[in-house]
Design a protein around this nucleic acid. Structure first.
Lengths: 169, 169
DNA sequence: CAGAAATGCTTTTCAATTCAACTATTGTCA
DNA sequence: TGACAATAGTTGAATTGAAAAGCATTTCTG
């Protein structure tokens, strides 16, 4: 029995009253919608990229993020935060893109701890090819049933929620 | 060089014109907000569950989904679709919950291909203990800056987007 | 200016997920 | 009926991602 299973079993023993399923809350519904929508759109993007024989979505997000940054490069830590992945995961992701010739690892002169992921011309070119595919899928997902104004409002609402979620632990 | 890297390299060679970073679209912004918000809320929920020494979020979602279903059981395929994971992944996830005594695998008399994941009393009890933790976190994330009406509207908008995304391939 | 703490990134280890191939059962149609 | 296709689920290999430990560099402090 795993450690977790033991914990679960021990916990279950201490509970003596069975409680029926609670009624779904409005927030629970919103959370469910957020999860399912995110999954559905992600799935759609991944399928579209795969069908066009393009690299997977995380590669696109990496390239797009770097392309928008001032000198087409970012510190590893900042990049990890922007992509919402761990630093360890980012190191390996960057390794893969470097191996494909899309990125370069450069270093800081004034602080030799920091390293940058730097966009290479091949990366910019690939991004330019991938972008129409992604944009087209997002059009289908978002603008089919949403006006530009509604899309902006959705963005704003989501950012508010994100702000609340990032607050206290 | 990996197969993918070769494809990337071959593709890059055929592109002769470097294209600058495109301006962010409204849909791109909405997609980014959706991704970041989902990640932030997920992170918050996982942290809260881990701190209370509860099983991870997928376990909660599984238990909650089964608890809401008619006879506290679901076909594997339907459950995979509801949780937005692959069927193969679901098989192993269910195996783990069964090993913890939370679920049971039952079978269909009329169609011996189908099997059900069935909620056990211990699973219902654990769910009852976990739910307050999850609900509390969702309260912080959603109701802090959103009225109930706004939450409902958010849900509705997201479901529309999901509908569009699930449409054609 | 040492020594300790903090920072930035990498490496290692391990659990979880996906993908493709496989088995078993049911449905279809010549 | 009998073969073939379709469906439901599981299994095994490979990939991905996260957590924690580790290393190098910088900053703080007495």
């Amino acid at each position: 029995m795993t450690e977790q299973a033991e914990a679960v079993a021990a916990r279950a023993e201490t509970t003596t009253v069975a409680i029926g399923p609670a009624a779904p809350t409005p927030h629970g519904e919103a959370w469910g919608a957020l999860t399912r929508t995110h999954a559905a759109v992600t799935q759609r993007l991944q399928d579209a990229l795969a069908q066009a024989e393009f690299p997977p979505l995380p590669w696109y997000e990496m390239l797009a993020t770097l392309a928008e940054s001032p000198e087409q490069r970012m510190r590893m830590g900042d990049l990890a935060e922007a992509l919402v992945i761990t630093r360890g995961g980012l190191t390996k992701l960057v390794d893969r893109l470097i191996k494909a010739g899309l990125l370069e690892r450069t270093f800081c002169e004034t602080d030799r701890r920091v390293s940058y992921a730097t966009l290479m011309p091949a990366g910019a070119e690939l991004l330019a090819e991938m972008r129409p595919v992604v944009v087209a899928e997002l059009q289908v997902a978002f603008s089919a049933n949403l006006t530009a104004r509604q899309a902006d409002e959705l963005t704003h609402t989501l950012e508010r929620v994100r702000g609340s979620a990032c607050g206290a632990a």
